[in-house]
Computed example of a mutant assay.
Amino acid sequence: MRHSLFVLALVLTACGAPTAPPEAPEPAVEHTAPSGAYSLDKAHSSLIVRLSHMGYSQFTARFETWDADLNLDVTSPENSSINVTIDPRSIASDNPPAGFIDVMRGAEFLNAAAFGEINFRSTSIERTGANTAQITGELTLHGITHPVTLEARFNGGYAGMQLDPNARIGLSAHGTFNRSDFGMAYGIPPEGTNLGVSDAVEVIIETEFSGPAWSAPPVTPSP
């Protein structure tokens, strides 16, 4: 019996173990959204940043005042473009201790008094799948500009309807950059320790955009 099992193992090794069939590529999201100029639907959008706090948790904050304009080309998405502006004074977090928000706005971090706007302007868009793309752009933060790449996903959209007479689309995006690249090194842990707040900043974006006006289909009179 042992000899038979040994022979079977040799046969399986020689032939190769069974492999799972390759996954089918993700189908493109069906949508009716047209090309054109889109503006941020602020009520359905969020901009979150996360940093490791001493390795124990991901400290989470958000910007409450920001805007974005999108020029969408549905036929050739790589020809689309986006521009984002953020008010650094609008940073907020859950249950902040007294004075904590002022510290984040202050000279050691965002220095919002000296640099009143954060800006991201796309420079290239590369499709990575039926519904995904890498959006590379110039991030200007703390008065310094560096390239940053976001992984983006198109969630679908429509041309409009009676209750929402403009086109609408949804996008999700995330990425990471080092704050020290932008002159914000305060509180970064000494090498070999976690005693501080990480250099790496994770950005998480959920958005909806409102686009061109909807043209209601003509009503066909009843015979």
Rank of each mutant, 00 (worst) to 15 (best):
L139K: 07
P97D: 01
I101N: 05
T136R: 13
A159F: 05
R121S: 14
A112F: 07
A130N: 04
T140R: 11
V103P: 01
R121P: 01
R121A: 14
A152D: 02
H146F: 12
M104T: 00
G157D: 02
S93P: 01
S93I: 09
P147I: 07
F115M: 02
A152V: 03
D164H: 15
E117K: 12
G129D: 05
A114V: 08
L139G: 02
A114Y: 09
G129N: 09
L141H: 08
E138A: 15
I118Y: 02
F154R: 00
F109S: 02
N119A: 14
F109T: 03
D94P: 02
L150H: 08
T140H: 07
T145E: 12
N111H: 04
E126Q: 11
N155Q: 13
V103T: 09
Y158L: 09
Q134F: 04
S93D: 04
N131M: 06
N155L: 14
F154M: 00
A113C: 03
N95K: 07
E126K: 13
G129M: 01
S122Y: 11
Q134C: 06
A130F: 03
L139R: 01
H146Q: 15
N119C: 08
R121E: 15
M161C: 15
A112I: 04
E138P: 02
S124K: 13
G157H: 00
P97E: 06
L141D: 09
T123H: 10
I101E: 05
L150P: 11
F109Q: 00
F115N: 09
A112W: 06
N131S: 11
E126H: 08
T140S: 10
G116W: 00
E138Q: 14
N131I: 05
D102W: 02
E138R: 10
G156A: 06
G106C: 06
I125E: 07
G116R: 00
Q134K: 12
S124Y: 12
S124G: 10
F154D: 04
G137M: 06
A133I: 09
P96M: 08
T149N: 12
Q134D: 12
I135F: 15
G143T: 03
N155R: 13
N155A: 12
E151K: 10
G99W: 06
T136A: 07
L139S: 00
G116Y: 00
I144A: 15
A159I: 13
G106A: 10
L139Q: 00
Q134M: 04
G143Q: 04
T132Q: 10
T149M: 10
A130D: 07
T136W: 08
A92T: 07
N131Y: 10
A113F: 11
H146G: 14
A92S: 11
G137A: 05
N95S: 10
D164K: 14
A159E: 15
P96C: 09
M161G: 15
A98S: 11
I135K: 14
L150I: 03
A133Q: 03
E151T: 13
A113D: 15
L141G: 08
T149F: 13
L141R: 07
R153K: 15
E126W: 08
P96K: 08
D94G: 02
R105D: 02
E151V: 06
A130S: 11
L141T: 12
G157I: 01
N155G: 14
G160H: 12
P97I: 06
P96L: 03
